[in-house]
Amino acid sequence: MEGLLHTSKMRKIDRLSYLPYYIIYHILYLMDTKYAVRTCVLSKNWRYSWTHIHSLNLCHRNVLNSVAFHGFVTHVLHHRKDLNLVKLKFYCSDVELDSIDEIIETLMSIVFEYAISHRFKEFETDIVDNFPSTLFECQALKTLKLGQTTKCLRD
């Protein structure tokens, strides 16, 4: 029997429309957010898909320099839908440089404010100190992962 699934031409054209949006969002979430944002040029349907991602993977190493990283992160925070944030990965040190420059310091406070106000539950980062006190008052936050160690804030 030749069902729909076996009409190869249909298959090719309709492959995407079979896929529910929550699966697309999930695939986007599994990538670095930079790659998720790139999907905005795939087609009109995809233009704003990335803005629904429930978690963010922000990694300095995948962007040219601090200025570009700052531009990238603020753009993402500004355009992402106003949804609660499940997980935030924020890796802000450069590969070669151990130090964190002023631009990144400003960026850190913007990211913290966003994450706290969007009630994030999990946080993974390479920042090791100077956390704002508001972070530890954040009721939603359950897991904090610093480098390799995981600390549970509750229970």
Partner: peptide, 30 residues
């Protein structure tokens, strides 16, 4: 590559695509 992977047809005009790329410039290096 990603378009081919998902079987997506590009329905942007070249001008539209160029504009969106420019708006998200940092996302398209490397």
């Amino acid at each position: 590559y990603v378009r081919a992977f998902f079987g997506i047809e590009n329905d942007f005009t070249p001008e539209e695509e160029a504009r969106i790329r420019a708006e998200n410039e940092w996302a398209f290096d490397g």
